[in-house]
């Protein structure tokens, strides 16, 4: 009985004093998920990949360029690309933004919820390496510290033509599997 009360008090202290941000680092640094092995049938995705977009603490510049890449002037529907309504339907995860500690936990959870075969594209200087914010205290600089990445698209922000160019290069790489 005493032990149970001691445990509750200890949990209460830990829950209030230890900031939830530090608990997030603990969970994120525990284990980086491995890249899943690709079988030969994975290349059927190259005819119509569906994108899921996640913003992990960006300035919104790369997000409006990803949104503009879905509009009629650049028309990704020629390649069969569309924005998927939920993460369980997605093939390619497009990540923007310098990964903050609170959003990094959500990103890892999202990656584990995606079904195989899955690919990750990091768009913008902040997602690749931290960009301008690589020294800040709340930022784990770079998406590849949390999940494995397949293609990087630099630029601040990356033009919609460059985003389409990066997706096409990834799909071409799949043809050689």
């Amino acid at each position: 009985m005493v032990v149970k009360y001691l445990f509750l008090i200890l949990y209460d202290i830990v829950d209030r004093r230890l900031f939830s941000i530090d608990r997030c680092i603990f969970m994120v640094e525990q284990s980086k998920p491995m890249r899943p092995p690709l079988s030969g049938t994975a290349k059927i995705i190259r005819y119509t990949p569906w994108l899921v977009h996640f913003n992990t603490g960006a300035c919104n510049g790369c997000d409006i360029e990803v949104l503009a890449a879905l509009t009629p002037l650049y028309d990704p529907e020629r390649f069969g690309i569309k924005l998927a309504p939920s993460i369980r339907h997605g093939d390619i995860l497009v990540v923007t933004g310098a990964v903050t500690k609170k959003a990094g936990e959500r990103l890892k959870r999202l990656y584990e919820q995606m079904p195989n075969p899955k690919f990750v594209i990091a768009v913008g200087a902040c997602a690749i390496d931290g960009g301008v914010f690589h020294n800040a205290y709340n930022v784990l600089a770079g998406v590849d510290k949390v999940i494995p990445v397949d293609m990087y698209i630099p630029g601040c922000p990356a033009r919609p033509e460059a985003i389409l160019d990066g997706i096409v290069k990834l799909l071409k790489k799949l043809e050689e599997l």
Binding site: M151, R159, A162, K169
Partner: peptide
Amino acid sequence: EYRLASPESI
């Protein structure tokens, strides 16, 4: 030139 996408560092 803006077509700089690649899987390795450039």
